[in-house]
Design a protein around this nucleic acid. Sequence first.
DNA 1: ATTGTATGTAAAATCGTTTTAGGAAGGACC
DNA 2: GGTCCTTCCTAAAACGATTTTACATACAAT
Lengths: 338, 338
Amino acid sequence: MATIYDIAKACGLSPATVSKALSNASDVSAATRERVRRIAQELDYVPNAGARALSQSRTWSIGILCQDTSQMGLWHYLFAQVIESFKDYVEQHGYDIVFISNKVGNMGLSYLGHCRYRRVDGVFIVNTDHAQTDARELMESNLPKIAIDFENEKIGCVKTDPEESMRMLFTHLYDLGHRNIVYLHGERGKYITEERIAALEKAAAEASDKSVNLRLFPSRYYSIEGGFDSMKKLLSATKDDRPTAVIASDDYTAIGVIEAVRAAGLSVPEDISVVGFDGIEITQRTNPSLTTIRQDTKAIGEAAAKNLLSQIAGEEDVPKTVSLKPQLICGESCRDIK
Amino acid sequence: MATIYDIAKACGLSPATVSKALSNASDVSAATRERVRRIAQELDYVPNAGARALSQSRTWSIGILCQDTSQMGLWHYLFAQVIESFKDYVEQHGYDIVFISNKVGNMGLSYLGHCRYRRVDGVFIVNTDHAQTDARELMESNLPKIAIDFENEKIGCVKTDPEESMRMLFTHLYDLGHRNIVYLHGERGKYITEERIAALEKAAAEASDKSVNLRLFPSRYYSIEGGFDSMKKLLSATKDDRPTAVIASDDYTAIGVIEAVRAAGLSVPEDISVVGFDGIEITQRTNPSLTTIRQDTKAIGEAAAKNLLSQIAGEEDVPKTVSLKPQLICGESCRDIK
DNA sequence: ATTGTATGTAAAATCGTTTTAGGAAGGACC
DNA sequence: GGTCCTTCCTAAAACGATTTTACATACAAT
């Protein structure tokens, strides 16, 4: 493959001049620049990203961490959309993406190790067990970085405003007359879980209505089966005091919840109203269609990208946290019981 | 960040020896090797993939081309699973993945240009418009490469055996008594479309039954809306000779088909039987659940990875085409009309 | 004693860029 | 004519590895 040396030789110039000509440096005459360009074309020259990276000490690549014990793998519908939006954005700015893993070859690299091996210019933490040593090490590092739905002193985040989201859901149910509500929340201890629980309890408290009975019940994220099992347990645990509405941790869980309600011989929304979270496409195709909070995945990906690129560029005053507006999608899974 | 030079200095050795010690070369004493290892640990050394690539002229990275005009983007459920499986496999062998695009920065790189810019060791063509100039250029190149559902002289492929798949579907419907069948096929001209149509017609011919009436009707891949629209048209075009069964090009299309049947005041499977293709998870959650052909996405990804790594290793007799077994999943979308 | 063979290490070249420091040529100005 | 800018270009170092060649030393075989 042709290199700048080949071009230099063909043009009768030095490699340095060729490099500058190709990168639009100011101290090359227009005539020379054009000649170099032409010859480069003719020789089918493509720069070597690795060599460039070595000399610039930046690779124009960004790491993405999206790993989880959940069976969904990397391709959770929601995360996938966020990643795609992120990728499109950074790609336009010349970056490629590297999926960070701690199982590369037999090198025994940690997440951070992998980032350093590939010399990524920054990292986007989409999903991981934030409590795990490996993830912690990465977040402690001083790489430019941004996360989704997680933050601490060392890392900022992009998220769909939890306060507003949960208030929207609660208010929607409350206005339909629901007072006996259960939140089927995701794994306790996860940052986003705690945040949403707090937000929901706050919204409930703000109603200042003694008749409101908000209870929590554990489930897990992104699992139809998990939603099914949890709802089954919930139903048998609340025989005498069945909730009139259930807020699922996410849309998959909500699908499972609906199945469980049916399996118990009850109906949605006649007997129990159900709402989800995330607003993935399929929720509008289910039967009944689901009332849920839509997260704007495109905006999330873009906001994360913009923030990270600003950090990489060394800009000052890069916002630490970006909070995006949720949108309530009204399906047919809730009944007015007033 | 520590380099082998730092280690060399700390050990009182030459960089060459350090390099060899770290790569388990034979001509380094065990004692030296251990010492180097220890110091490397202490200095928190991580090799620089770019530098390594420059000197080895291989990057340990593989390009993935998965782009399409379809609105599904990169994250089509089926392709996503294949890519994940592929990624897991090559990752274990030390490779990272690069998504190939023709919109990187403002460099105006073609697909092949991007591959050359990043010096990928091989490329996996998951989905693209194979007729497009850019894709053709890539396939003409002499990079190690493998595709899904496409092949020609220059590139081999991994696919779910079309002959067997289509025969399974046809036979299933035939055995249920269906004689009036429509295939709602994907875009004409696509390799896989033509292959499946031919396979289906062959299976129908093999029935040697004059009463079999197999018709083709155009639709497009992976679109619920597309399936809906096509089925609507089909219903109005066949008022007097409605098919008893419809084979959709894929599961998404099948979902749209079912909606269209309902919208026409008919029912699945009472009035019309519907089958899909791909076997994505959600088809078992729809109402009714879908009879479909399951493609083994994990096996596809692995087969592609294995094949590509063999090519990269320069092995001889790497199989050009790998054909995998389909699996018939029986849902409740077909009725026995005998 | 000589030759040969491992063995362990070092020096230097190489990979393809970018960057820094400077040099030559030519014009403008006093 | 000398000084000072510009403008355009080059040489050389740097980036961080790997790889090839060469050179010691030790020890065995002849």
